[in-house]
Amino acid sequence: MLPYSHASCYTSYGRTELVAGSDLDPQRLQEFGDKWGVEALYADYEEMLAKENLDIVSITTSWGHDHAAIAPVVAASGVKGIFCEKPIATSMAEADHIVKTVQDNGVVFACAYFRRWRPYYHALRDAIANGTIGDLLTITAFGVGTLMHGGTHYADLMSFLAGEPEPAWAFGRIEPPPEGATGWSAEIDPPGSGYIEMKNGVRLILDGVSKGPISFVIAGSGGQLVVHNDGRDATLWRPPDDGGRWWVSEPFPLPPQDRSPPLKIVEDIVSCMDNGGKPLNDEENSARAMELCIALHASHNAGGKRVAFPLADRDLSVDTW
């Protein structure tokens, strides 16, 4: 659903105007300027921050280590809002620094974990909170893949669906790269699986070996929601009214996407700038998504032992594209 790129969202939304851009690649920078009619183009983003009176800055560089380097500088520059690609960093030490700098400077921060702005996941969260499946027990994600690039998306969503409980401990396994895999995904951000117990007793389970579009089984004391195709289809399973052994199913209706998630993020940032409050995925949520997945690496590195939250090793670093 369009608009989807950061630039197209700023040009589509009536409250924002795209006025400047920065890129180390001169050709790509000029193509950006030509496409969007932007004349204030900079090779050095710090020069852009110093010369342009910017309200919101998007950080759209590819690598996590670049997000970690750029975000604190932008947060301390006087801007009011930041829209950052994920993950926000490579280690919890970097993430902690971003959280502190954002909060010290009163910046509205949102990270591009888009599923928090999808209405069908809100419908599922509401159903869980309203007791449709009884007391929530576990959320299992299938098709997680690489932990930092993809897994942080799903760990963040699972935390959102569960009502943002605090994590207690986790154990995990880093999976061997798929046969024939090459490039960054095989070398620095491999698939991973793990088990995370929250302080309220809810369990989050990430399956990094199964294939197909991301799917979830959300299990409660009185039923299950089985969600396929990344939230496009859902089925509710519950015990029969007559007390029989076999559960019965029915389609669980989900609302359609009305506007693109990145556009809704821009709207959310502007609303928070106007009225206060936090976006659906703020600096603390985005740091938490990282910590849930880095914990699985920490457990694997310790021979599969259980690791506690907050993670003791704040310098353990896992990069991703």
Rank of each mutant, 00 (worst) to 15 (best):
M1I: 11
L2K: 14
L2I: 06
S5T: 15
H6C: 07
T11Q: 11
T11G: 06
S12M: 06
Y13F: 14
T16A: 15
E17M: 13
L18V: 12
S22A: 15
D25H: 12
D25N: 15
Q27N: 13
F32P: 06
D34M: 13
E39P: 02
D44W: 05
A50I: 06
A50R: 15
N53I: 02
S58M: 05
H65V: 07
H65F: 12
A68K: 05
A71N: 13
S77Q: 03
G78L: 08
G78Y: 05
G78I: 08
G81V: 03
G81I: 03
F83V: 08
C84K: 00
K86T: 09
I88D: 01
I88N: 03
T90P: 07
A93L: 09
A95M: 09
H97P: 00
T101C: 11
V107K: 08
V108R: 08
F109P: 09
C111V: 04
Y113G: 07
Y113K: 10
R115Q: 14
R116C: 04
R116Q: 12
A123R: 06
T140I: 09
F142Q: 04
G143I: 01
V144D: 02
G145S: 08
S159V: 03
S159I: 00
S159F: 06
F160L: 11
L161V: 05
E166K: 14
P167T: 14
W169D: 03
W169I: 06
G172K: 11
R173P: 07
I174C: 13
P178N: 12
P178W: 13
T182H: 12
G183N: 11
E187F: 07
P191T: 02
G192K: 05
Y195D: 14
K199E: 15
G201T: 10
K211V: 09
I214Y: 04
I214D: 01
S215W: 05
V217D: 14
I218W: 00
A219L: 11
G222A: 14
H228E: 15
D230N: 15
D233I: 09
W237F: 14
R238L: 13
P240W: 01
D241H: 12
G243D: 05
P251M: 11
S260I: 03
P262H: 07
P262M: 06
L263F: 08
I265G: 02
I269M: 05
S271R: 15
C272V: 01
C272K: 10
M273W: 07
G276D: 01
P279D: 00
A287L: 03
R288C: 04
E291V: 03
C293P: 01
L296K: 02
N301I: 02
G303A: 13
G303C: 10
G304E: 02
K305I: 02
P310C: 09
A312Q: 15
D313C: 09
R314M: 08
D315H: 14
S317F: 04
D319H: 04
T320N: 13
W321P: 03
